[in-house]
Every structure is written in C-alpha cells, then in structure tokens.
Computed example of a mutant assay.
Amino acid sequence: MATSLEGFASASLQSGDDPNEDMDPSTDSEDESLSQPNTSEQIKALLADTERVKLTKKLSEANQQNRFLKRQLYIKEDALLKFKSELAVMELEIQALARLAEEIAKSGIPNGSRKINGKYIHTHLVARLKAVHEQLTEQIKDVDVAQSKEVSVFWAGMAESVQVMGSFDGWSQGEHLSPEYTGSYTRFSTTLMLRPGRYEVKFFVDGEWHLSPELPVTGEGLMKNNLLIVE
C-alpha cells in the first residue's frame, strides 16, 4: 500500500502538475498596481477633480442666490410701482386742494380771520399745500430713478451661442441672447431690467470674449469692456 502511494506521488510530480497553476495571474497584477504609489500626473488629476467639484458647488450656490435676488428685485419693483401709483393719486388730491385754497383766498377775507406771522390763515394754507405738492413731485422722481427699466442688448454676427456678462449682476451669471435670423447675418438680442446708471458689459460668443462695436468702450487691456448707460 505504501509503495502505491509513493508511485502516485512520483507520477504526479513527473507529469508537471503544479498546485499554483490554477491561480489567476491577473490577481497578482492587480495587487501590484494597487501597491504602486500614484504618479504625479494622477495626483494632479485627482486634485483637479476635487477643485472642479468645489467650484461647481460654489457656482450652483451662486446661481441659486442670484435667482433669489432676482425674485426679490421683482417683488420690490412691484412695490415701487404700487407706491408710485399711490403718490400720483395723492399728487392729484393736493393739486385740487391747492386750487380750492387759492379760490377761497381770492374770494375775500372774512372779518375776524386769524393771522399767523402777519399773514392770513388762507395764505398759509395755500403755501403749505404747494410745499406738500412739491415734496410729492420730488418723491415721484425718486421712485422713477429707483425703478428698473427694460434695456435691449444686441449682438450682430454669425455665432451659435451668445451671452452678455457684466457688472449688472456682479459678473456672476449674465443673460443668454436669443438668435434672430435676418438674412446674411445673425442678430442676437435680450432684454435686461436695469436701474439708471453705468454698467460694464462684455459678450461671451462661442466660448470667447468679444466687445460690441455698437457700444462705447471703457478700460484698457484685459480690463477693456463695453459701457452700457441707462438714463
């Protein structure tokens, strides 16, 4: 019995059977690749991906904040319009009262009428009403200044994508221009809601910065921008 076992073992060795032959060689290569340290290029790529994720998150947060501020601006614009309407009604009322006071003053001064600082009360009433009317007129002007206006912005030229960026929103998001095909060239346009003032803008056309020849230019070098003036 012992002789047969020895013969079986020697036969197995002679046939070249190796117990390690069934192991997958790819496993060794994977272990070796995992054990190798990352190269400098791989580290740079990982860092770039991390920074890209951070920037994308910050950009998303900035866009959300920008949309929130726009909604708040529209709400305030509606409130300004309502306030302006109320001021206009008050102005008409004051004008009517001032005319009545002038008629009373011209119709004659009754005996025993009271005086203030040497002037009859009718005269003081007319003066006060006129002063209130002037104040209302100035307030209406202030509302007009604070109220945003529709400003049309154009870009003429062949392009696939046009975006206007500028100080009107802190150079954060800008506005995309819609194409208007008019024959031999392409015209892009959009409408901005801006308050009176001076704004620097620049056009981002197919991934490159451009200045519009139709708008004045301010600044020098890389800081050169178009100037948009809202009266």
Rank of each mutant, 00 (worst) to 15 (best):
A45M: 13
L59I: 11
S167W: 02
R128F: 11
Q173R: 14
S212P: 08
W209R: 02
E91R: 14
K84C: 00
I75V: 11
K224T: 10
R198F: 01
E138S: 15
N20T: 11
V145G: 00
G170C: 10
E93H: 08
R198V: 12
D28E: 05
V201K: 02
V230S: 11
V145R: 15
E160L: 09
I121N: 06
L69K: 14
G118T: 10
Q42K: 12
K44D: 11
N111Q: 14
K58W: 07
S29L: 14
A11L: 15
T27S: 07
W171D: 05
S35C: 05
L129S: 07
D49Y: 12
V164E: 11
S167V: 08
Y74T: 06
Y185L: 10
N111W: 00
P196C: 05
S178F: 12
V205Y: 07
T3N: 09
L73G: 08
E93D: 07
F203M: 02
Q65A: 14
H124R: 13
K224L: 01
K141Q: 12
D22R: 11
I109Y: 06
T50G: 08
Y185S: 14
D31C: 04
D49R: 09
T182A: 15
P216I: 01
K76D: 08
H133S: 15
K84T: 04
T137F: 02
S10V: 04
T191P: 11
K106C: 00
E102F: 05
N63K: 14
Q64D: 07
G166P: 03
Q36E: 13
L55T: 09
T50L: 13
L5T: 10
P179G: 06
I75T: 10
G157S: 03
A45W: 09
M193N: 10
I116N: 05
H133K: 10
P213C: 01
E51I: 06
T39A: 08
D206G: 07
P37W: 05
F188C: 03
A48C: 06
Y185W: 02
R198G: 00
D28W: 05
R71P: 03
E6G: 12
A131C: 02
R99S: 13
E160I: 01
S33M: 07
K76Y: 07
K141T: 06
T190H: 06
T218Q: 12
A127I: 03
N117E: 12
A156G: 00
E220S: 06
Q65V: 00
K106G: 02
P213D: 00
Q42P: 05
R195S: 12
P37E: 09
W209C: 01
D78A: 08
F204V: 03
G112V: 09
E86Q: 08
W155A: 02
L34N: 06
K119L: 12
L59M: 12
S12K: 12
M1Y: 13
K149C: 04
A62Y: 04
V53S: 15
L81M: 13
A101P: 14
K84D: 06
T123C: 01
L92Y: 03
E175G: 00
E180M: 08
N117V: 02
F8L: 15
I121K: 10
N225F: 13
R114G: 01
L34Q: 11
L47Q: 15
T218F: 02
E231R: 07
K70N: 08
E77V: 00
Y181M: 08
I94H: 10
Q135A: 05
T56N: 14
L192P: 07
L211D: 04
